[in-house]
Computed example of a mutant assay.
Amino acid sequence: MGNGVNWGAAFLVSGFFLSVVKAIGEAYTFWLFAAFCVIGLVWVIVAVPETRGRWLEEIEASWNEASPRRTLR
């Protein structure tokens, strides 16, 4: 999943970069992408829990507690 997201993000950046440079200029384009990076960093700090020193089973149990499983009928 992570590899797919990385490829998708690279595709979007390479597809839009020249169009954005022509529209707003080089410096503003880099500032725009830097702002996206800062937004992503804030999201990771807020939404992704710390897993250092925890076993995989503990992490899985905490995710299962946070979102109860739905059963198919």
Rank of each mutant, 00 (worst) to 15 (best):
A47F: 14
V42C: 10
W63L: 08
E58H: 07
V46L: 12
T29W: 03
R54N: 03
A47D: 15
W31M: 13
G40C: 09
F36A: 12
E57C: 00
G40Y: 07
E57D: 13
E58F: 06
E65S: 14
A47N: 12
E60W: 01
A35G: 14
I39T: 08
E65T: 08
V48N: 06
A61H: 04
R52H: 07
V38Q: 03
A34M: 13
A34D: 05
G53T: 06
L32D: 01
E50Y: 05
W63G: 00
A35C: 08
I45K: 15
V38Y: 10
G53F: 02
L32V: 06
V46S: 00
W63V: 04
I45C: 05
L56I: 12
N64W: 00
E57R: 09
V46Q: 10
S62P: 00
R54C: 00
A61S: 08
S62V: 02
L32G: 15
F36W: 08
T51Y: 06
I39D: 01
S62W: 03
A66Y: 04
F36M: 12
C37M: 11
I45A: 10
I45R: 14
A61M: 06
N64M: 10
C37S: 11
R54Y: 09
F33N: 03
E60T: 05
V44R: 10
E60G: 00
E60S: 04
V42A: 14
G53M: 06
V42T: 08
E65V: 07
F36I: 09
